[in-house]
């Protein structure tokens, strides 16, 4: 008894849109009720159509992902046209920013950073972290239309499959919002994917100097794993790229083994690592909250532990 109607999916990032295809099909089953929207992106149109679903190849002059208002307007027209009830977006930064604006246009309830969806009693139940990651809430959107932004990597990307189709559509967006894109800068590419590593050595602000960082990285390499970090290590100290941040505003990882070095254990961090099979924590403060969630607890100064390792 599924009450979810037509689903529209959209992400400017093709790899995230593929995950949304999987999410939509899991909720809806019926392929014909799932439509992906690609905005000014022929390549994405081809990619998603090859995954067995209907794709709207939307030509929307003047619409650019950097102008959230214009993207929301374009999507609203498609959602209205298709009479869709549920819009699935990716909960990357652009997707989250878009979610609230589109929801407001559609008069829809909205949930972002959703880490799981399931049909319960004919309604779509969503799970997401709340209270900074201390708790996990199960929530329903009560409005007729719903906008849900799904956390990246919650679903596997959809595989290629026959049966897809493409419909061309054009929308014109009136009143431009005056946003001018002056410059784009790519981040230094750190192609590491900490979410797939079996072993992670995760460093926090307890590391006193970059030599310890080199040692931690050597340990990770020796054990066949990757280095990850807490947010301040990347954003304040800029020792590692933001690609390697674990937590609420970083990534969620489920390695076989996580070795946590000099990390206090604030919920915004632990939410990203609490599903690791085994956790070893080393901290010089015996009362550090991180020890609450560790299988192995080592109270020690990293300056004594790291060099010999």
């Amino acid at each position: 008894m599924i009450k979810v109607g037509k689903i529209v999916i959209y992400s400017e990032k093709t790899e995230l849109a593929r995950e949304l295809v999987t999410a939509a099909l899991e909720i809806q089953g019926a392929e014909r009720s799932v439509t992906a929207v690609c905005i000014n992106d022929e390549e994405q149109t081809r990619d998603l159509a090859a995954r067995g679903i209907a794709v709207v190849n939307l030509s929307a002059p003047g619409v650019h992902p950097s102008d959230t208002a214009s993207t929301a307007r374009a999507l609203q027209q498609v959602v209205d046209e298709l009479e869709a009830e549920l819009v699935l977006l990716a909960s990357n930064r652009r997707g989250k920013e878009l979610a609230g604006r589109l929801a407001q246009r559609l008069n829809a309830g909205c949930l972002t950073d959703v880490t799981g969806m399931a049909i319960q009693e004919g309604r779509l139940a969503c799970t997401r972290n709340t209270l900074g990651g201390a708790t996990v809430a199960t929530q329903f959107i009560k409005t007729a239309r719903q906008v849900i932004a799904v956390a990246p990597r919650t679903y596997e990307p959809a595989a290629e499959k026959p049966g897809g189709s493409v419909d061309d559509m054009t929308v014109s967006i009136s009143a431009a919002s005056g946003i001018k894109l002056v410059e784009t800068r790519a981040r230094d590419k750190d192609s590491v994917d900490i979410t797939t590593a079996d072993l992670l050595v995760v460093v926090g602000q307890g590391l006193e100097n970059q030599e310890d960082l080199v040692r931690a990285a050597a340990l990770a390499r020796f054990l066949g794993g990757e280095v990850a970090c807490t947010k301040p290590v990347a954003t304040d100290r800029k020792w590692l790229s933001e690609e390697r941040v674990i937590g609420l505003s970083g990534k969620t990882c489920k390695p076989q083994l996580a070795i946590l070095l000099g990390i206090s254990g604030q919920v915004q961090f632990t939410v990203g690592i609490r599903d690791a099979r085994t956790i070893i924590a080393i901290n010089n403060d015996e009362n550090a909250p991180i020890f609450q969630m560790a299988d192995y607890v080592m109270v020690a100064d990293l300056a004594d532990v790291l060099p010999p390792l």
């Binding site: 959230t68 979610a99 609230g100 604006r101 929801a103 246009r105 972002t112 997401r128 209270l131 505003s249």
Partner: peptide
Amino acid sequence: GDNYSGQAASRIAE
């Protein structure tokens, strides 16, 4: 700081 849902600003802008 609690929900981290990031909707309010976008809704206000709209």
